[in-house]
Design a protein around this nucleic acid. Structure first.
Lengths: 354, 354
DNA sequence: CTGAAAGCGCTTACAG
DNA sequence: CTGAAAGCGCTTACAG
């Protein structure tokens, strides 16, 4: 088949130029408004017309110009991901999940890292959302918990979905992760291994999940008749270094805890380091359970027992909520399974020797 | 100051609606074309006029509509990052570097992971670039080495910058990382520690950097009078698992190598695992040097000696090349320092005991 | 150095 | 169910 056989050349389209809605209309013998209706899946098009126009669209390989549509709609086809989570693994998994949901929708993903300690945070987000007239925004923790940011999105009439460990908004704008459950599993695991003196290195209080995870641990232990000693609770910052500091203070106690649960894996590795420096062997002398199940959890020695959050799935589910109205679905009633963390048992926690 | 004092309300602008070029023109008492000239920094505007118009722009907080500009320019204000590197750390650092350069430019970053083994790779990239009419694209390895992808970008007249360990394109479209140098540093380090039987676990041949790093190692050893035994060279896949397999085969040799250099850190951790399983202690019984200097290099035990690539800087420099024409600069003559990897010496490689 | 007209490729609002 | 007109907010090409 030569170029001259294509519909494009038969219709006398300029080569090298993309076909427009006018070309489709002319060739299909309808008005451009009708083509527009077909593109936008309007029900007010006769089936026969729809088929005819669709055939021309496919034949020409026509795709509507996003800028022109955006200008007319006063809305772009870009989804923003605004995040302040410092873990590369978290960020990349989240991005991939969002992209999973966006695939085939014609929407693209624009990434926007931010820093909540930056005084210009809100004005920068405002400028970003307003300039790009974003189709919608996805907010993982902790920026999802920032009401000043949310206020701006509401004011700009920008759809959003928040991901958080507690319900902060209407169901159609929330994806709640059951962090209480994940921490509870970790707590039960340690209690069932016989541990009674259990240390907890929490995340920073800026993250709602820190308190939720602490609550999950506390409740699970209580369920087993074990009280969480508040003197064994230390606040970390979700970083390796903060894990080191917290572990030093916990392991300097006498008697020291026989097990430590950390709010994330980075801090668990800080515990590993301090234990090694003190000549303690994990898990023989100290059991450790982390949270996040980073790839390195299964690379370090001993392999780290950790709570896994399905981050990629979370990204996908949040994006699906954002797209639901476009697909004629009710985002509040989306049939999404609850996001449940699960404990991945490896070698860093073991039964307490009597 | 009340709302009624603002220029916007004095001029009778509708509240809640963003000011347009027409508002600026009317208030400044010029035509919209003149405002357009000011926005686009045309030299053909009298200084007095420029100042007057700029004042109104600032006063109104006017920012041009990106969709409308995009439609008229036939080009969006989006930079695409197309990548297939599987390392989350690499990806996030690269994104941050690109964003460093984009900050303040009004451009946004659209991420596009891809898979070179996907037969639809080229058509998907074409659709992405064509639909969004990208301002430009940045390509890290290995997709930067894919000529079919580059052909499409050329055909679509989409500016791009490639990042690679060898020069594959004109200087204004290339950021070359001196991987030969990085691997050579690793090689010299091991030779200087007295190692003679040195194993090399390379990356996949699909990555040009694999061969370049091997060459750097070989040349540095030769420089020290040490020959790289080709029987001690094994191809890995840049994954932990492939590092495990490669390490098994290398450490089963008799005599086994006294040191192993790996094409990346992931594979180095595979070596750690095998050594541990075999009862070999690093660095006493085996020295290991990695490449990438992932965050976990300083978390594992012993801390991993590794070659660091300034990935974030690379992202920034590549993006600066892409933006140079917009800033009236010549991208080929940009004053960018050469990208030089550097060896970060830690504890995983030590002097060979006689 | 400045401006009135036409156009970028779509959609909304209104008719029929 | 379908269409002609006007508009989204900018820029290009042409005058002056």
């Amino acid at each position: 088949m030569t170029d001259d056989d294509t519909t494009a050349s038969r219709a006398g389209l300029k080569p090298g130029k993309r076909p427009t809605i006018n070309d489709v209309a002319r060739i299909a013998g309808v008005s451009k408004k009708t083509v527009s209706r077909v593109i936008n899946q309007s029900p007010f098009v006769r089936e026969e017309t729809r088929v005819k126009v669709s055939a021309v669209i496919d034949d020409l390989g026509f795709t509507p110009d996003v800028q022109a549509r955006g200008l007319a709609f006063r809305r772009s086809f870009l989804v923003g991901l605004i995040y302040d989570n410092p873990s590369p693994n978290y960020v990349v998994n989240m991005q991939q999940g969002v992209l999973d949901a966006l695939r085939g929708s014609g929407l693209e993903l624009v990434v926007h890292p931010c820093d909540r300690s930056n005084p210009a945070l809100v004005s920068e987000i405002r400028a970003f959302v307003e300039r790009q007239k974003l189709f919608g925004v996805i907010l993982p923790p902790s920026v999802s918990e920032d009401e000043a940011v949310i206020d701006v999105l509401r004011e700009l009439d920008c759809p959003y979905v928040r991901i958080a460990s507690v319900s902060l908004d209407a169901p159609e704008r929330m994806l709640v992760t059951n962090d209480h459950l994940g921490a509870a599993e970790a707590g039960r695991h340690l209690a069932d291994l016989g541990h009674r003196r259990i240390g907890f290195i929490s995340g920073p209080t800026l993250f709602r999940s820190s308190a939720v995870r602490g609550g999950g641990l506390r409740d699970a232990l209580a369920e087993r008749g074990v009280a969480l000693d508040e003197r064994l609770v230390v606040e970390g910052a979700y970083t390796f270094e903060s894990g080191v500091e917290a572990a030093k203070s916990l392991l300097a106690l006498d008697p020291r805890p026989t097990a430590i649960f950390t709010g994330n894996d980075e801090m668990a590795l800080g515990v590993f380091k301090v234990a090694r420096d003190m000549g303690l062997e994990i898990p023989r002398d100290l059991s450790v359970v982390g949270y996040d199940d980073l790839p390195m959890a299964s690379r370090v020695w001993p392999n780290l027992t950790s709570v896994r959050l399905p981050i990629r799935d979370m990204g996908r589910m949040a994006a699906e909520k954002l797209l639901a109205p476009m697909r004629g679905l009710d985002p509040a009633k989306l049939d999404q399974p609850e996001v449940r963390p699960s404990l991945v048992v490896r070698d860093s926690a073991t039964a307490l020797k009597p």
